[in-house]
Design a protein around this nucleic acid. Structure first.
Lengths: 222, 222
DNA sequence: GTATGTGAAAGTGTTCACAGCG
DNA sequence: CGCTGTGAACACTTTCACATAC
């Protein structure tokens, strides 16, 4: 190995992985594509993302030294390095969707997964009325086929788009089938299990914003 | 600026508002509806949400003392108190959607906003081909009408579902129109402005999970 | 006896400030 | 010079542990 290792044994804060590196990547990619920017300083990137320059330098330093003093960072190199770190390089990740209601269908139609290397390769539902029907280009499969399909199609990520009442069970079945990462759109918190879970619930986001709204403005008087 | 009914002067960590209180509310509501549970201890609630009991007690203590030693918390009272704190009591919040593409239409069809008191009352697009058409029960309006409609319909929250290239501008227009909270589905980070913004980007969530996946499992190899 | 509420301690994460390199 | 990389200082958050109340 060229650079005598990342001498850095220090613990990387969770939030660096869970939030900031992906945002750095998103912002840098956008700068490349739109502005044709070839170099950024930590200050530039910080301004684009509402972070301090120091924060960005510190975050990147956990993974090596890829800036040049006096110049900043080479955008192309940094993008590539971030992609490697996040496990996005030379890879396509296969995903299975569970739950083909309105939400599930919207997820299949969402245009930003595939270009980023995330492909939905199978869809499941336990409703016999939906099994066999098409969603986009996929034929909906019965839940019985979950385990086999996940192995056969080399699926590493599950997407849960079922009602709250079914979500816990679906997550367990995905974990049993060997899925290691789950994107959960159902409004529940699952017990910690084998898989890494990320939750998406827009209602929670709204409910946190109303805390800040409530003092200055309400509708009751109408 | 005065908060009513909060004698506690200590600073409330952001993450309490932004993440945990809404999750507490979600879990408690579910316990009520499903299990008919009337009381919880901090330990019970912690187990349901993967938090420590101490964390829950500390979080709640920022807002008063609503537990009883030896008994725990009365679920119904706690739910009500949380709803007050978050600004959800006796209120409906009106929202405007901007961007009526595939994503925007899915948002209109999403079934969990209305039951939680969040109602989309207007939809906008700048594409003349879409203006005048219906989305659900709403007639799509031209962006020109944004400011007037927001005032007339008493809209406090904006939802951004436009492409990245248009998002920044849309956010500015919403802020100018007096919107104080924005749910942003576009893959950009907006500069800090007048409104509180919450971002939703499932791709970022996937990209953080692949970091943890990358070591143990890649395509073709086990 | 049992579970809350809370100061104090421990643990994490962020900012400072400057040495060092290009 | 300008800007990175980084220990050290600082700030913030969580956990501990126990007095307190039911």
């Amino acid at each position: 190995m060229v650079w005598s290792g990342n001498k850095n044994t220090k613990k990387i804060p969770d939030i660096v992985i869970e939030e900031r590196l992906p945002k750095y990547l998103r912002a840098l990619t956008r700068m490349q594509e739109n502005g044709g920017v070839e170099r950024v300083s930590s200050e530039d990137l910080g301004k684009a993302l509402n972070y301090s320059a120091a924060q960005i330098r510190k975050d990147l330093s956990y993974f090596g030294r890829f800036g040049k003093q006096g110049q900043g960072y080479d955008v192309k190199k940094l993008v590539q390095r971030l992609r490697e770190i996040l496990g996005l390089e030379n890879k396509q990740w296969n995903m299975a969707l569970v739950g083909v209601g309105g939400l599930g269908r919207a997820i299949v139609g969402y245009g930003r997964f595939a270009p980023q290397g995330f492909k939905i390769v199978a869809a499941f539902d336990h409703d016999p009325a939906k099994v066999g029907k098409k969603v986009g280009t996929l034929v909906v499969k019965d839940m019985k086929e979950l385990g086999d399909t996940i192995k056969r199609e080399n699926i590493q990520i599950g997407i849960v788009a079922v009602p709250a009442s079914a979500a816990q069970q679906v997550i367990e079945r995905l974990e049993e089938a060997g899925v290691k990462a789950i994107l959960n759109y159902a409004p529940i918190t699952a017990p910690r299990g084998k898989a890494k879970i990320q939750d998406i619930d827009p209602v929670l986001k709204l409910q946190s914003m109303t805390y800040y709204l409530k003092q200055d403005d309400q509708i009751g008087k109408k």
